[in-house]
Amino acid sequence: MDQADVEQLETTLFLEALYRRHGYDFRNYAQASIGRRVRRLMDKTGAASVSHMIPLLLHGDGLLPLVVETLSVNVSEMFRDPEFFALLRNEVIPYLKTFPFIKVWHAGCASGEEVYSLAMVFKEEGFYDRTTIFATDLNPLVVEQAKAGVYSLDSVRSYTANYQQAGGQAAFSDYYMARYGWAVMDASLRENVTFAPHNLATDGVFGEMHLILCRNVLIYFDRSLQNRVLRLFDESLVHGGIMALGSKESLKGSEVAAHFQAVNAKWRIHKKIAGGAPDMVTGDLDGAGPLEAGLEACGE
């Protein structure tokens, strides 16, 4: 065993300790990236090796927030990939409008930038009042930030161009108030949003969702965890429900691939057409028109 092998072993042991002692399961994350994050944690704690951090983890809670913050990648933006949000507005929402009322699960929402983006689009399309949004993330700290909806003014201003490219119809600056270098997001945007911690690796199904948004989360997982999460999404969606993943995240080779049909392949927007918890097809959907029909047909 050379030094690199030893560090890999230490990382495995560290992640096992984290899971068994605190319940946070990073064991099935893609190794290159989690290895780098564990090394970054080592820099932050000043530990001499990865295994030196194990006792700190076992004998107290003090290190935990730093560990969770460092291991989870919380970077996000508003209207990242404007083209995706334009599609959401122009193709997905007209279809979702065929349901009387919809539930949205925004998984891995980080500090909430995407949640506010989604809420703006729903509002402008006159659909917000018919939606309930559940916004979840593994990291309780970022869930609190998402709930607060306060971002640095510079960063929010820098999203203006994205907003416009995504087909935004209002003045972007109407959605926030500038205060001492901070942008305070308009509280009406989160009226229908419930923020909560939820861990995709260990927690269960969210029932009867019509839209699941989970972007730039699955790439951090290995194949087995990706499969677990995709099964979870499959089981959480109603028949005809929409699942949108990040532009580099695909269903290819997953167990549930056959249950979905591509609505837009480039932007990884999929519609559930079969499988997964059939008992969840409820009366809700009866008025929704032909479920198997493509979006073109549903868009009126």
Binding site: Q8, A30, Q31, A32, S33, R36, R37, V73, V75, N216, I219, Y220, G246, K248
Partner: peptide
């Protein structure tokens, strides 16, 4: 590597992407 993503090789020599900082 696609624009705006890190490209990495995993220990099993498959490729992976990441949107880390």
């Amino acid at each position: 590597a696609p624009a705006d993503y890190h490209l990495q090789m995993e220990p099993d020599q498959t490729l992976s992407l990441s949107a880390e900082e």
